[in-house]
Design a protein around this nucleic acid. Structure first.
Lengths: 253, 253
DNA sequence: TAGTGGTCTAGACCACTGC
DNA sequence: CAGTGGTCTAGACCACTAT
C-alpha cells in the first residue's frame, strides 16, 4: 500500500532555487504545472500531502500550500479535505487571460495584421464616459481597427481611451497590439470586466469581415483598469464566430 | 494629512464573530464587499494598511491579508506595493460563477420553466466520450431541455452525464436545475471549463427559441468536474442573444 | 527614509473523510 | 482511529514607492 502511494509522485523532480528572485511558491507551482502538462503527473494522480511535499523541498507548509493553491485556482488540481489532492481529469486548455487579441494571435503563431480605420480625439458619448468614469463630453481617443490573422479578417475592434493617457500614431497601431503600446508607456492593466454576447452583423461590419449582413457575430465589451484603479480602456469588439471563441475556467471557491 | 487618511475607512464598522463557523477571513471579506456594494467604501477609496486593519479587528496579519486577497481575486480591490490598497473604480457587476442557468434565473427573480425534450440513456458519441473521459460507446444519459424565463424561450440545453452517476426523472428536471439535482445526490461541482462562441440557429433551434433560422445564437460548451476530479457533465447550450450574455472578470496575476 | 505590500517560517488546533 | 486539508497566529525580512 505504501509502495503504491509512494509511486504517485515518485517520477517527479522538484527543486527550488533560493537565490532566484522568483518566489519559492511560484517556482514549485510552475514545476507542478509543467509536470501536469507533460503528462508526468497524469490525470487522477494523487499528490503527496502538503506537509510531506514541503519537507521534501525544504519549505514551510504555508509556502507549499500557496503553490498548490495557485494550481487549484487555475483548475489543474482539486483538493478534498480528509482525502487529498489530485490532478484534474480532462485535457487542459488555455485560459482567458488579461491579454489583447494581438498577443493571443502572436502566441498562437498567427500573423496579426491591423488596419486603422479611425484614430481621433473626440468628446466621450454618455455610455463611454460612464464606463471610463469621466464626465460626459470629456475628450477621449476613439479607435476603430480591423484585425486580420493570416490574411483573413477576424475582428472589428472599437476602443475608447482617456485622451490625456497617451498619444497613438496610426503606424504604431498597425505594428503593435494596444495593450503592448500601453505597457510601453508604463500603464499596466490589472483588472478587466468583460461581457460576452452575440448578435447579427450590421452592413458595415459584414463588409469588413467578409460576411453577409445579419450573420452571427461574437461580441465582447470590456472595461480595463490599471493598477492605479483608474479605468484605462473601454472596448466594444466583434469577432467572426468561425474563427474565434472565448475559453473560461471557473473554480468553485 | 493623518486626519484625511484616517477618514478613508472611518465610516466602516467591521467586526468578527469567533464563535461562528464561518472563517474569520471570509467574514471580513464579506463585510468589505458589502461596504463596497453599498457605496460606504466608494470607488478609489484607499484602505488602511493591512497591519492596521488586522490590529483593529484583533486578527493576525496573514488572516487579514487573506480577506483582502479574496476581494482582489474578485476584482473589487487593487493593491500596489509601496502604495496601498484601493477600491476599484467602476460599478460592479455579477461575476460568472459555477452556477447553472436555473440558479442564475432564480437569483435574478425570473421564473424559470423547463420543458424536457429528451431524457434517455444511450451510447456516448466519440466527442462526448472524450470530454467525459469514458470509453466511446459507454452508456451516458442524454438530456435536451428548453428553458423559458417569464414565459419567453431563452435557451436550448443539451447535456450528457455518465449513466451510472444518477437517475433523473422528467418531473424532477422540470422543477429543478440540473446542478441542484446533482448537489442533492452528493455530487459537488468544483471546476468547469467553458468555451463561449456564436453561430446561426438551425431550423430546430430557431423553432424552439422563436427566432428565424440563421439568427445569431450565443453558444457555450462546458465540461464540469466534481471534487473527486471526475468529469460529471458535458453541456452544449445555445442562448437567445437578446436575453442572455456572460460576464467575466479577469485579474492579472 | 518611511511606509506599503510580498514573501516566508514554525509552529498550533480544528473539521472532515475513510477505514 | 489515523490522515488529510482548512484555519489561524506572531513573528521576520525583503522589494518597491513616494517624498
Amino acid at each position: 500500500m505504501t509502495a503504491y502511494d509512494a509511486a504517485m509522485t515518485e517520477g517527479l523532480r522538484l527543486s527550488v532555487d533560493r537565490r532566484s528572485p522568483v518566489p519559492l511558491y511560484h517556482q514549485v507551482a510552475t514545476q507542478l504545472a509543467d509536470a501536469i502538462d507533460a503528462g508526468t503527473l497524469a490525470a487522477g494522480t494523487k499528490l503527496d500531502n502538503e506537509i510531506a511535499l514541503a519537507d521534501r523541498l525544504g519549505l514551510s507548509r504555508p509556502t507549499m500550500r500557496k503553490a498548490i493553491e495557485e494550481l487549484v485556482g487555475k483548475g489543474l488540481l482539486v483538493r478534498k479535505r480528509g482525502v487529498g489532492t489530485q490532478v484534474v481529469h480532462g485535457r487542459v486548455r488555455r485560459e482567458l487571460e488579461l491579454t489583447s487579441l494581438y498577443d493571443d494571435l502572436s502566441a498562437a503563431g498567427k500573423r496579426p495584421r491591423t488596419a486603422v480605420l479611425l484614430n481621433r480625439v473626440e468628446p466621450a458619448p454618455a455610455e463611454v464616459a460612464e464606463e471610463l468614469g469621466v464626465a460626459p463630453g470629456t475628450d477621449v481617443r476613439r479607435l476603430e481597427r480591423l484585425r486580420r490573422a493570416d490574411g483573413a479578417p477576424l475582428a472589428v475592434l472599437r476602443n475608447w481611451l482617456p485622451a490625456d493617457l497617451l498619444e497613438l500614431e496610426d503606424g504604431e497601431l498597425e505594428e503593435h497590439g494596444l495593450y503592448e503600446l500601453l505597457r510601453q508607456r508604463g500603464t499596466h492593466l490589472r483588472i478587466a470586466r468583460q461581457r460576452i454576447g452575440a448578435r447579427g452583423a450590421s452592413a458595415d461590419e459584414a463588409a469588413l469581415l467578409d460576411l453577409r449582413p445579419d450573420h452571427a457575430l461574437l461580441t465582447m465589451q470590456r472595461t480595463a483598469y490599471a493598477d492605479s484603479g483608474r479605468a484605462v480602456e473601454y472596448g466594444d469588439h466583434c469577432y467572426r464566430p468561425d474563427s474565434y471563441s472565448f475559453e473560461v475556467t471557473v473554480v468553485e471557491r
